[in-house]
């Protein structure tokens, strides 16, 4: 009895915290999603109307395809980049911490600050385009071409996360026993074969982690399009989070924004499950 009381006392702090900062907003989100409310008065229940509207909303589908398109750019780029970074890091003998930290600087810099930086750097009149124009006589409309803008943002986000994801992959690689490589060497396997037959399969847990992180990230992109493109050109860089924000606070429609948030959450969860089904394998390192 006394022990149970003690247990409640310990967990109570967390439970109260979770109830206030997790439970309450979550319940409120659900209430909002099934009602009509515009900041004033009491929410009016309207059943599934918000959801019906959402699936008929062309902007929702535009964002859905933007997100898929973004993933098609971002995930191969970031996984490949992070792999190369991890491989390079495992080859480096000196200043390893220095290199790691240099790449992590991108990850900890302020999104607003580097967004301004990139938008000036790559603007039509910025240094990059001036250089291209002087040397080759062409400019690249990084942020003003509908298709290219999404790719440019994917490149920025890749830049930000290569170091972090690379470090996860690096840790995964370090966990692979050296003896496996030695044995392969004795059997006459080339470096290439070793990479595909040993490194790639055994780094699977780390790779799955990176993929799950990258998917979650894709559904949560906000700062870069908000600061650089404002969702344009032609709504091609509009993201779920950007749309949720403007719907709640500029269009004054928090209940529809809540619906969007729930559907976004469900979609990202669905993608994570799918990727785990496709990629994740049982790995025994010992």
């Amino acid at each position: 009895m006394r022990e149970a009381l003690l247990g409640w006392q310990f967990s109570g702090v967390y439970l109260v915290y979770a109830a206030i900062f997790w439970g309450y907003p979550f319940v409120w989100l659900l209430i909002l999603a099934f009602s009509r409310w515009r900041f004033f008065g009491k929410p009016k229940p309207i059943g599934f109307d918000n959801f019906v509207r959402l699936f008929q909303d062309p902007i929702f589908w535009r964002i859905f395809w933007n997100t898929m398109n973004f993933m098609a750019y971002f995930i191969p780029m970031v996984v490949l980049g992070a792999f190369l970074f991890a491989l390079a890091l495992s080859k480096v003998k000196y200043f390893r911490t220095f290199f790691t930290l240099s790449f992590l600087v991108a990850n900890v810099s302020s999104g607003v600050a580097y967004s301004i930086l990139f938008s000036n750097l790559f603007s039509e009149t910025g240094p990059v385009n001036s250089f291209l124009y002087k040397t080759f006589g062409v400019t690249i409309p990084w942020f003003s071409d509908p298709q290219l803008a999404l790719l440019s943002i994917a490149i920025i986000v890749t830049w930000k996360f290569i170091g972090y994801y690379g470090l996860i992959l690096f840790a995964g690689m370090q966990a692979i026993p050296k003896s496996l490589y030695e044995a392969a060497e004795l059997d006459g396997a080339s470096k290439w074969t070793q990479f595909w037959r040993i490194t790639v399969p055994l780094v699977n847990p780390a790779l799955t982690t990176v993929l799950v992180f990258a998917i979650n990230l894709t559904f949560g992109i906000f700062t870069e399009p908000y600061m650089i493109t404002g969702g344009g050109p032609m709504r091609r860089t509009l993201t779920f989070l950007l749309h949720i924000y403007t719907t709640a606070f500029q269009r004054m429609n928090p209940s529809y924004a809540a619906t969007l948030a729930i559907v976004t959450g469900a979609l990202s969860y669905g993608c994570v499950i799918l990727v785990r089904k496709l990629v994740e394998r049982e790995v025994h390192l010992t």
């Binding site: 938008s119 000036n120 603007s123 039509e124 009149t125 910025g126 409309p141 942020f143 003003s144």
Partner: peptide, 15 residues
């Protein structure tokens, strides 16, 4: 006219 004018005010650099 242009699609994008960059950070500097275009009336200043006479673009």
């Amino acid at each position: 006219t242009a699609v994008d004018w960059g950070a500097e005010f275009a009336l200043n650099n006479l673009r």
